[in-house]
């Protein structure tokens, strides 16, 4: 897992075949591209896990089933 020095956030959406500069192509990958039967759009996100911080990239989970759950906010009610 990439190190997280607590300063720089992760890259966010990552386009297919992308290697380096994601931020430049941000506009291109900001369109909705998730649909059932299609590839899950890849991304890298900052994360809290097992007591520490790390970056998580969705494509690191290829070969396993993944449940990806979005929710409106920490400390809310439901």
């Amino acid at each position: 897992m990439p190190e997280d020095g607590c300063v720089q956030t992760a890259r966010g959406p990552v386009s297919q075949g992308d290697g380096a500069d994601v931020r430049e192509s941000h506009e291109e990958v900001s369109r909705v591209s998730a649909r059932v039967g299609g590839k899950a759009p890849d991304f890298e996100a900052s994360a809290f896990f097992a007591g520490g911080f790390q970056n998580v990239r969705l494509s690191d989970y290829l070969g396993r089933w993944v449940v990806l759950c979005f929710y409106p906010g920490d400390f809310t009610f439901v």
Partner: peptide, 30 residues
């Protein structure tokens, strides 16, 4: 930005809605 590409980001509220995606070992949303 991640919520945006998954179609669950609400820009007015500034939050990701309650979206759940089941992704298979090939990276396909089922």
């Amino acid at each position: 930005a991640i919520g945006q590409i998954y179609g669950v980001y609400d820009p007015a509220a500034g939050v990701d809605l309650r979206g759940r995606f089941l992704i298979d070992p090939d990276g396909v949303i089922q």
